[in-house]
Amino acid sequence: MNLTDIELDALTEVFNVGVGQAADALSQLAGSPVRLNVPRVAMISKQGISDELTAQGTERICAVRQEFLGVLNTEAVLMFPVQQSLQLVQMMVGGDIPLEQLGEMEQEAMAEIGNILLNSVVSGIADVLRLKFEGSMPQVEMGPVREVLCGHDQSDMQEQVLSLQIDFAVEALEIRGYLIFLLDVESVASLKTTVRAFLETLSL
């Protein structure tokens, strides 16, 4: 079950509300303006996400993973190429962080960045669509793209996910990340129903 173009356009507007809130919060953390925008929202397979990242020369990613439970249940995964995630942490918290590895402090910083962005986006969705969610603690992981997407079970690479491209601009640094929502069939159906109801309120 997929979302229609009209439903995806509506979700893009909804997501931009949350991304705007995230930009404000991250600007305070960084001490300088952070610009975020969502150029694309799409239903795409995990294989499609892997192909896009690989085409950009990305083999390993840093991901922040968080579960949200409510009317629809989802796992949100925010992903950056490893090198860019380290640059993002540098820009956000300052200091000369070696770009070879994420230490414990840097992982905590990445978890905080992910937590702000994920919760802002989900909060924006909840406010506009009048939903309620409870979120888990964010978890940071690093590894090959396919492993982060599927763990050790590579058989579900054709599973569809709701994907947002998110472009970051912090001072002179420009980063493209991906935020994906893992949704089961039931949750996609609930999302379609909710978005349709939202579109009907706009037409009144």
Rank of each mutant, 00 (worst) to 15 (best):
M92H: 04
L86R: 09
V64I: 06
A76W: 05
A42L: 11
E67R: 14
P39V: 09
Q84S: 10
L99A: 13
A22T: 03
I113K: 06
A111D: 02
Q21D: 12
A23F: 07
L117H: 04
N37K: 13
T58M: 07
L53R: 06
G114C: 06
A55C: 03
V41I: 11
L118A: 10
V77I: 13
T58H: 05
A22W: 06
Q101E: 13
Q87L: 14
A55V: 01
L102E: 02
L86K: 12
L53D: 01
S50R: 14
E75R: 15
V89H: 03
V41S: 03
L117S: 06
G31L: 08
Q87T: 04
E104K: 14
M79P: 00
A63E: 00
A55M: 11
M91E: 10
L102D: 02
L86M: 12
A109T: 06
L117N: 05
I116L: 12
N115R: 11
Q90D: 03
G70H: 09
Q90N: 07
Q107W: 05
V64H: 04
S85G: 12
L29A: 05
L86I: 11
R60N: 10
A63T: 02
G57M: 04
V34M: 12
M105H: 07
E67L: 09
Q66Y: 04
G20T: 07
L78Q: 08
G103E: 09
C62F: 11
N37L: 15
I113Q: 05
E112F: 06
I61D: 01
R60C: 02
I116F: 00
Q101R: 15
N73Q: 13
L117W: 04
T54H: 10
L36V: 02
R40P: 00
P33C: 13
L78I: 02
L69S: 15
A63Y: 01
R40E: 08
L117G: 02
S27I: 02
G57E: 03
L118N: 05
E75Y: 08
S45M: 12
V89N: 00
L26W: 01
R65F: 09
I44C: 03
V82L: 14
V77M: 10
E52V: 11
V38M: 03
I61F: 07
L99R: 13
S45P: 01
E52R: 15
G103I: 02
P98L: 14
G114R: 06
L86Q: 04
G57K: 09
V93T: 07
L53T: 00
P81A: 15
F80V: 02
F80Y: 09
M79I: 07
R35E: 10
C62W: 07
E67T: 10
L72C: 07
N73R: 14
Q47R: 15
E52G: 08
R60P: 00
Q90M: 10
Q21R: 15
M91P: 00
E106N: 08
N73V: 02
A30Y: 01
I97P: 00
V38P: 01
A30Q: 06
Q101W: 12
A25G: 04
L26K: 02
R60S: 04
V34R: 11
L29V: 09
A22Q: 04
A76Y: 08
S85V: 06
Q66S: 08
N37C: 10
